[in-house]
């Protein structure tokens, strides 16, 4: 994959995207008793053994690391669901809307920290890998459809990580189109010497363009 995350245009580093994804809510099954936690980012708990509760992913991972809970993988992270998604992705040029915006980061975090809580982890992992590849290939083909008339690009259901990968390219490409299409941005020798109003030097240039 085109790893350009250091590029200043990608804005968000992979770590920052992970940080954002860590606020997604997941189900956990605690195995300890603990009162509610009143965080700046919200109130979570109370925690009672075997009772499912909802917490942000970062908290789930922190508890998991200390052996205090098991994480319930989100519904979309099952072999059945992912196979459906993969099929849908392969069947159509449209991006499927079945996966959350941060599916890459969430699945990665869960693989790293809670692999024993994911049923069929190898299968799930390879399915997600396949989905990623199919989707990225689609994005690449979509990009070929760009042309000079593109002033805004609508992208449906692109995920955070995918956005980050294509952002430098799309951003620069659109900007280049935009620049070449704006007559006032093309340096004009006549304009440098004296600043005549736009209207005056519009006519000759138009002819050149045709």
């Amino acid at each position: 994959m085109a790893g350009q995350s250091n590029h200043e245009l990608s804005l968000f580093s992979a770590e920052e995207l992970e940080f954002i994804a860590e606020d997604e809510i997941v189900d956990i099954v605690p195995n300890l008793k603990m009162g509610p936690l009143n965080f700046i980012s919200g109130d979570f708990g109370p925690f009672t053994p075997q009772i499912v509760t909802q917490v942000p992913l970062w908290l789930a991972i922190a508890l998991k690391k200390r052996g205090k809970c098991s994480i319930r993988p989100p519904l979309w992270m099952s072999v059945e669901k992912l196979s459906q998604v993969l099929e849908a992705e392969r069947d159509s040029q449209e991006m499927s809307d079945q996966l959350p915006f941060h599916y890459v980061e969430i699945s990665r975090l869960l693989f790293d920290h809670a692999r024993d809580n994911i049923p069929d982890v190898y299968m799930v992992r390879s399915l997600i890998e396949d989905i990623r590849n199919v989707r990225f290939h689609k994005v690449e083909t979509d990009l070929e459809a760009f042309n000079g008339r593109t002033i805004a690009v609508k992208i449906k259901n692109l995920s955070a990580m995918e956005v980050n990968i294509v952002r430098p390219f799309i951003g620069r490409a659109l900007q280049a189109f935009y620049k070449h299409d704006s007559p006032e941005l093309i340096p004009d020798p006549e304009r440098v010497s004296d600043r005549r109003p736009q209207v005056v030097n519009n006519a000759p240039r138009r002819q050149l363009r045709r």
Binding site: A152, K154, I155, K156, L158, V163, I170, G171
Partner: peptide, 10 residues
């Protein structure tokens, strides 16, 4: 909820 690449000025 749909993502758009668009010129900041607009």
């Amino acid at each position: 909820g749909v993502l758009h690449f668009i010129c900041y000025k607009s």
